[in-house]
Write a protein that binds this DNA or RNA. Structure first.
Lengths: 301, 301
DNA sequence: TCTCATTAATCGATTTTTCCTATTAATTAT
DNA sequence: ATAATTAATAGGAAAAATCGATTAATGAGA
């Protein structure tokens, strides 16, 4: 079905409300001739007469009136569209779907979200906690706007912005031979059972990388489902593990049967980054968010 | 404010629903290139991004989704317009504003309207009774669709169609010298006081014309406001008058103190016609109406 | 890792549409 | 009668929409 054009509807609306071709043309910023042919085309398209014309009067037919009415609705809808689109939203307002990996979420978010919410009160955050691979998939599918990852991680076509660095700590059972003293070098731990999160957590790879080990086929019983369970296993004397800075500082990680020592290995051991599709339509917002996070973490929140 | 075009909205609707430029282009019967630039123009117009594009995926932004939604509404409204306009109404259906002069209305309408309504059950008649000049004005202003006049009458730019002819009868008080016998010639009435309707009624002119008299400045007290009052005046012996056929046949005009004789004057004395603007948009309906009236009157209803 | 296929964007040319100027025909007002 | 007003029309110019071909990015498969 061939539809009338917006222009034609504007012509109709004008001529029905003014009852005068020349005046209507002026309102539409076209010549009388243009408007005249426009109306004729509309009538042809609709297959019905919309106006009675004489040299002295322009008289809408009942159908013309009805059509003008609908045209008005339609035009106002179109105008609404433009208005709605053109009002530029303030930075970081409206819905934002943010993914976080489980080894960051519980430690970072309680720390920073109150300030973020205070700074951007119109922001509506929808949080999703999942492993990196899942988040990456959701990002690609458009189910998330952005996500917080721990790097290094293969991000594919995503863009990212690092907003914090972390070093690792060694978590030892109380009474371990290295339990007191200064930083611990990876070489000192070769004889210890290294407890890791189950497959899929990037922290597993980062930890291995920090102590220059290859991946080891651990028994499922020795794989933690979360840092909390891992800590319990360390406290139980089943081995040692590495914890990121952020977890160490968290009150949730305090445990009376655990000793913590810095890992003596140069450079940051993982970096926290905000990640998004490179086609994402509001990168400025995300850049503002990373700036905000970075600032909050530098100032110790 | 510059508005988006219908075409652009179709493009948006298609690409958002299909998530694919080439397929959307096919649905819109244009090339991918055309659709692509169309969407870009729309985005430029709205000043906002509607889609995230990558080579593997087309992802509407929240605004894009909202706009596509509105676009759909708008397009369906436009389609509705076309549909509504294109369904052709049956003959003589819907509202019709019909004017009638007072010397016809009360006699003709009760006679014909039942049959008309029966024949065109979807017709919604709005009746206006007024003198010819008033009806003509209303016709010109578009306040009426058509009107029933008695001719001759100067109709200006109107078109008309005669559907009946009438001869006049002479109404005499009982006991008048001409009260019995055959038809009466105008010359026989020169000595009688001729009673007429007040200024404005065309019957006044038609009556004068029928007896070849010039207009006479009658005293207001001798001018009737309706045929009923005129008849009462005749019955009271104040003079004579002329009545059209139709009124004579009407039961309303029976009066014991009146005698009626045909006027012996060649040809019809007035003609009944349906009148409309020559620009009127549904002349076929009116032609059907005159045909119907004409037929009804010929067959004696 | 290297093609090959797919996809949206881009460019230049062409067609289509839109629009304007000038004029006409009908009508009204003076 | 004469001038002014009005909507329609014709012809040409300007603007736009569209197409075909190409490009660059990406993903799939060998």
């Amino acid at each position: 079905m061939r539809l009338p054009s917006i222009r034609q509807l504007q012509y109709l609306q004008a001529v029905v409300s003014l009852r005068h071709f020349a005046q209507a043309a002026e309102r539409c910023h076209v010549t009388q001739s243009t408007l005249s042919t426009g109306i004729q085309e509309l009538e042809g398209l609709l297959g019905a007469q919309l106006l009675e014309r004489s040299k002295r009067k322009v008289l809408p037919t009942p159908l013309g009136l009805a059509m003008a009415d609908k045209a008005e609705q339609l035009l106002s809808l179109a105008a609404q569209m433009v208005e709605e689109a053109q009002q530029d939203r303030p930075l970081l307002s409206g819905p934002l779907r943010l993914g976080v990996i489980p080894t960051i979420g519980p430690f970072l978010l309680p720390q920073v979200l109150p300030s973020v919410r205070e700074r951007f009160p119109q922001l509506e955050l929808y949080l999703v906690e999942a492993e990196s691979a899942v988040l990456l998939k959701k990002l690609e599918e458009g189910d998330l706007d952005c996500a917080i990852f721990a790097l290094p991680y293969e991000l594919g076509r995503m863009e990212s912005q690092v907003f914090a660095s972390e070093t690792f700590w060694v978590a030892l059972p109380k009474g371990h031979r290295l339990a007191s003293g200064g930083p611990i070098a990876p070489a000192q731990l070769v004889d210890d059972e290294l407890l890791l999160l189950e497959e899929g957590h990037c922290l597993r790879d980062h930890a291995l990388s920090a102590c220059h080990r290859r991946d080891l086929q651990q028994k499922a019983a020795f794989q933690g489902t979360s840092l909390y369970t891992l800590i319990e296993m360390v406290a139980g004397g089943q081995g040692i593990t590495f914890l990121p800075n952020m977890a160490v500082n968290s009150a949730l990680m305090q445990h009376k049967d655990i000793e913590l020592r810095p890992l003596a290995e140069a450079g940051p051991h993982r970096e926290l980054a905000l990640v998004w599709r490179k086609e994402y339509y509001r990168k400025v917002d995300l850049e503002a968010l990373t700036a905000c996070l970075s600032e909050l973490l530098e100032n110790g929140v």
